[in-house]
Every structure is written in structure tokens, then in C-alpha cells.
Design a protein around this nucleic acid. Structure first.
Lengths: 152, 152
DNA sequence: CTGCTTATTGCGACCCCGTCCTGTTAAGCT
DNA sequence: AGCTTAACAGGACGGGGTCGCAATAAGCAG
């Protein structure tokens, strides 16, 4: 798990990092131990064990600050809550429509076609999110549900 | 603007299309005239002009049905409401962090790297969403705001 | 080290987006 | 035309997230 970023963790600072409070340290560690695509609810629960009495809104504010600082990446994978993970440039997720499983495909893989097209248009990307929605191998083999629908 | 799809508009049906009611016809036309990435609020307003008295919940149900039928694609581009547009397989959007402008890059462009990786994993994609967040050409040239922040 | 400024916290009220539940209406099959 | 049942209007509800306020503490200046 990466250390609590002070201000310039890895890349260029995108926004103010803010003060290093106890609450933010705890939130950061919770996210690290929860792993990728964790929700605020999960963070709340984890944090509650480590240190009860931290307000829900504090956690929301913490993840927002970290996201704005570029240390965290926020994605909404389905219709549900935002999911957070420690940041990287390009992000590929798979979401299974049948079982709802979320997985990573890879990170920082270059997507040449898209990036050159972006360059042609003069668009400077800071982050690229790719979400593939479909059916995972497990569900395809034991094929539950007659016809997959778009909403789980 | 494409015609109101009866049941099998272009691709294979994923869910039941449902009945062709007057309300759905009006909603479909509103979406067509609003163009890509329109919100339910915009649809509500447009529909209200054409035919007052159509319930908000009806419009929500209509776009859900159309999305499930595969005629519409729903995307949440920022933290805001879902945005709808007439469907295609692969979808590339750009979102400018400075001015908030949303644009299309292209549709149905194959993304070979990603698709082969998906195949390796036995994941069968039904739809691939790509969102590039960054700074558009206009904002880059007249460069407002000293440092771009992640939230508009 | 002490004092001061100001970001951050805790708490609760609040808002937005979207869903769900009711009885009623109308699509479209026979 | 009759009938079945999806879809409708209207409104209550719920989850996820934000905001405003008073109290607290980070961290700079001296």
C-alpha cells in the first residue's frame, strides 16, 4: 500500500492536496487495504473499525480532495455509488451484467487509436476511462439467466 | 433522426421492446431532436412543449426501456445525471474539465488491444464505453484557470 | 514554544436523481 | 368489439452525495 501522499505523490499536482489530518490518513489507509474499486460505504465501515466517530461527510470530503489532488480515481461502474482506487492514467474495467463482478483489465495500456484521434482534435487527455460491459467467463459457462439484460 | 424503432431497430434485441405508445413516440422524437448526450431533464422540457401532462416517471421508464432494448445508450459523463443517445456499440466521449463541454470522438471504432485482451480473459463485451477527461482545444488555447482541477 | 489563522471536522439538514407503488388508461391480440 | 395486460399519471419514497454551521486542530510566524 502506497504511503499517504504529502502533496506531490507521483505526478504533477492537479489541485491542492490539503492538510494531512488524522482522519485523512485513516481514510487513505482504508482505501489502500480495501483495494481497487471500493465504495464510500466500504471505507466508512473500515474506518469505523479503526477509529469510530469519523463522520460520513468527512470521508466524502476526503475522497473528493484526494481525487482532485490526483491521488485517487473515481469511477461509477454501474448505476451504483462511485468507486475509488489509487490513481493511474488509463483505466480499464470490466463489469459483468449477470453477476455484477467488477475487474481490472490493465492499467496504463496505451490506446494508440484513441490517443492519436484525441491529438488530432487538440484534446489533451488527463485520464482515460474504459468500461467494458458484458458477460464474464464464469457466467458465460454456467450461463445463468436466459437472456442478458442491460440492467443487472 | 432515426425512426421510432418497432422492436428490432438495427441490432439484436436484448430485451423486450414494449408497446409503441404515444408517449414513447414523443420521447423518442425529443431525444432525436435534442441530439447526443441529452439528459432526462432536457427530454422532460422538450416533451413538455410537444405534449404537456406526460409524467416524469413515464419518461424515466421510457428511456430505461429503450436502453434495455438496445436502442439507446446511457452514460454518466460526470457526477451529474445519466445522458442518453441513440445507440452504438463502442462509444468514445471527451469531457473538458475546464468548460465542461462533452463531445464525441467516434463510434464503433475498434479498439483492438482492449478487445483482444477481453477475449483472452473470456469476457464477452456487449458495450464498451471510453471517456477521456482532459482539456479541449478551445480551453487549452485561451487557457482559462491557472491549474485545471478535476471537478469543474 | 505559544499564539493565531484558517482549513477541516462532526453533525444534521438538505438536494438531486431515479425508482416504486397506486389506481387508471389504452395497446393490440383474438 | 371484447379482453388482457403493458404502460400511464401522480406522487411518495430512497440512496448517494453535498452543504452550512459551530467547534476543533494543522501548521505557520514570531
Amino acid at each position: 500500500m502506497p504511503a499517504m501522499p504529502h502533496s506531490h505523490p507521483t505526478g504533477p499536482k492537479v489541485g491542492p492536496g490539503g492538510r494531512a489530518t488524522k482522519q485523512r490518513r485513516i481514510v487513505w489507509e482504508a482505501i489502500g487495504s480495501l483495494g481497487p474499486h471500493c465504495t464510500v460505504d466500504e471505507i466508512v465501515e473500515k474506518v469505523g473499525l479503526a477509529e469510530p466517530g469519523i463522520a460520513r461527510s468527512t470521508i466524502y470530503r476526503a475522497v473528493n480532495t484526494m481525487t482532485e489532488a490526483g491521488n485517487l480515481v473515481a469511477t461509477r461502474l454501474d448505476g451504483g455509488p462511485l468507486r475509488y482506487e489509487i490513481g493511474s492514467q488509463t483505466h480499464v474495467h470490466t463489469v459483468c451484467q449477470v453477476c455484477g463482478a467488477v475487474d481490472h483489465l490493465g492499467e496504463d495500456d496505451p490506446i494508440p487509436d484513441v490517443e492519436s484521434e484525441l491529438a488530432d482534435r487538440g484534446f489533451r487527455p488527463i485520464r482515460i476511462e474504459i468500461t467494458a460491459t458484458g458477460v464474464c467467463r464464469a457466467c458465460a459457462t454456467r450461463r445463468r439467466r436466459p437472456a442478458p439484460t442491460l440492467k443487472s
